[in-house]
C-alpha cells in the first residue's frame, strides 16, 4: 500500500511538469525568490540603526561600545593606510594554507580508514584519541617545536581543519549504500574505478559538509594562533585594539572575521550545491 502511494506521489508530478526532451536544467529561480535574501537583512539593519541612535544620544559609552559610524571610520582609515589589506591578506593566507594542508591530509586518511577495514583498525583509534585533545592544547608544543612564526600557526589551523573533514569523509564512505556498490561489482569495476564511479560521488555530500565545518574551525583557530603571538593579521588587530584601548578596532576586526568567514563558506557551499544538484533532498525542493 505504501509503495502504491510512493509511486504516485511527488515524483510523478515532477515528470509531468518538466520538459521531456531538453537536457536537465534546474528550474530558474522565480523573481520573488531572488529577493528573499533581503529578509535576512531586516533584523541586522534595524539593530544597526538602533545602535547608532542610542550611541548618539549617549546611552552606550564610546570607550566601551563605539557607534557603528565610528567603527566604519576606523575601518576606512585602516584601509586608506593599506594596513587593513595587509592584515586581511596574511590572515586569509594562513587560513587557506592551513585549510589546504589539513583538508588534504584528512582526505587521504579519511579515504583510507573509510574504505579499508584494515586501515580503519590501524589508524582510527589513534586519530580518535588525538581528536579528543582540545586542539588549543597543542599551541605551546607547536610554538616550542615550530617557533612563533608561520609554521606553528598554519599547523594549528591544519589540525583544526583536519578532524571534521576526516570524520565526515570516513563516515561518508562507510555509509555508502551497499546496494549501489553491488551495482559496481556486477559490472566488474576494479577497486579504483569503483572508488571513482560509486564511492566518490556518493560520499561527496558528507565530504562537503566536512569541508565547510573544517573551514569554520580554520577561522576559529587562526584567531587563536594570532592572539598567541603575531605582528600582523586580524587576530593581531584584536589584541592590539585591546592593549591600546580601542574597542572600535576590536569590533571592526570581529566584523571582518564574520564577513570573511561567511564569504569563504559561501564559496565552498556554492561549489557544493553545484556538484550536488542531483540530490533528492528536502532543501532541493525549497530553494
Amino acid at each position: 500500500m505504501s509503495n502504491f502511494l510512493k509511486t504516485n506521489g511527488s515524483k510523478s508530478a515532477a515528470i509531468s511538469t518538466a520538459s521531456a526532451t531538453r537536457p536537465y536544467r534546474p528550474p530558474k529561480r522565480r523573481r520573488a525568490a531572488r529577493h528573499q535574501w533581503a529578509i535576512g537583512l531586516i533584523i541586522p539593519i534595524t539593530l544597526l540603526v538602533l545602535w547608532e541612535l542610542l550611541s548618539r544620544v549617549g546611552v552606550f559609552p564610546p570607550n566601551l561600545l563605539p557607534a557603528p559610524s565610528a567603527i566604519a571610520s576606523t575601518l576606512w582609515s585602516l584601509t586608506v593606510t593599506g594596513e587593513l589589506v595587509e592584515h586581511i591578506g596574511i590572515t586569509v593566507f594562513r587560513v587557506l594554507l592551513g585549510f589546504l594542508i589539513g583538508a588534504g591530509l584528512a582526505t587521504v586518511f579519511g579515504a583510507l580508514t573509510g574504505y579499508s577495514r584494515f586501515a580503519h583498525q590501524l589508524l582510527d583509534p589513534l586519530l580518535q584519541a588525538l581528536r579528543s585533545i582540545p586542539s588549543l592544547a597543542w599551541v605551546p608544543l607547536f610554538i616550542l617545536w615550530l617557533g612563533i612564526y608561520e609554521t606553528s600557526k598554519v599547523s594549528l589551523i591544519a589540525v583544526g581543519v583536519f578532524f571534521p573533514v576526516y570524520l565526515n569523509l570516513m563516515s561518508g564512505i562507510q555509509n555508502v549504500d551497499r546496494k549501489l556498490v553491488e551495482v559496481g561489482q556486477v559490472y566488474r569495476l576494479n577497486q579504483l574505478k569503483l572508488i571513482g564511479r560509486v564511492f566518490l560521488p556518493a560520499t561527496l555530500p558528507a565530504y562537503i559538509v566536512g569541508l565547510r565545518s573544517g573551514l569554520g574551525l580554520g577561522w576559529m583557530f587562526v584567531v587563536a594562533a594570532e592572539i598567541m603571538g603575531a605582528s600582523k593579521g586580524l587576530g593581531f588587530l584584536l589584541v592590539d585594539g585591546q592593549t591600546t584601548g580601542r574597542p572600535d578596532i576590536i569590533i571592526a576586526s570581529i566584523l571582518l572575521f564574520a564577513v570573511l568567514g561567511k564569504l569563504t563558506d559561501a564559496v565552498v557551499a556554492s561549489a557544493g550545491k553545484r556538484l550536488l544538484r542531483w540530490q533528492d533532498s528536502y532543501s532541493s525542493h525549497h530553494q
Partner: peptide
C-alpha cells in the same frame, strides 16, 4: 528516450 537527460529523483518508481 524522452527522459534520457533526467535525474533519477525526477522519475516515478516504474520509470
Amino acid at each position: 528516450s524522452d527522459f534520457a537527460h533526467m535525474l533519477p529523483r525526477q522519475l516515478s518508481g516504474g520509470m
